[in-house]
């Protein structure tokens, strides 16, 4: 359990740095989705299944959908 938790914590920091430093906006939006997905497993390891379910549905699903729709409307932006 401890190993999984520490690997996921380091992975989430790395993916956050990638999300804020990449030039392509679509890449950074998808990286945010992966960031939230790693948080889901961290919450399950920390014995919070309710928070994990809401994070999986809201932050990984709906918020990414909002971002992608917004990027779809902002064509021609780097």
């Amino acid at each position: 359990m401890g190993i999984i938790l520490h690997v996921l914590l380091v992975f989430s920091v790395l993916i956050a740095i990638f999300a804020v430093s990449t030039k392509n906006l679509l890449n950074s939006v998808i990286a945010m989705s992966v960031f939230s997905a790693s948080f889901v497993i961290i919450f399950i390891v920390l014995q919070a299944p309710d928070v994990a379910l809401v994070e999986a549905v809201v932050a990984t699903g709906i918020t990414t959908g909002f971002f992608v729709i917004t990027l779809n409307k902002l064509e021609g932006v780097k």
């Binding site: 299944p49 309710d50 994990a52 379910l53 809401v54 549905v57 809201v58 699903g61 709906i62 959908g65």
Partner: peptide
């Protein structure tokens, strides 16, 4: 069990969103 109004509501909303997309 884990879940509740918020989670279920978001899953129901995702039906409309998937249909729209």
């Amino acid at each position: 069990s884990p879940g509740g109004g918020f989670t279920g509501g978001v899953v129901l909303a995702s039906i409309v969103i998937l249909t729209t997309i």
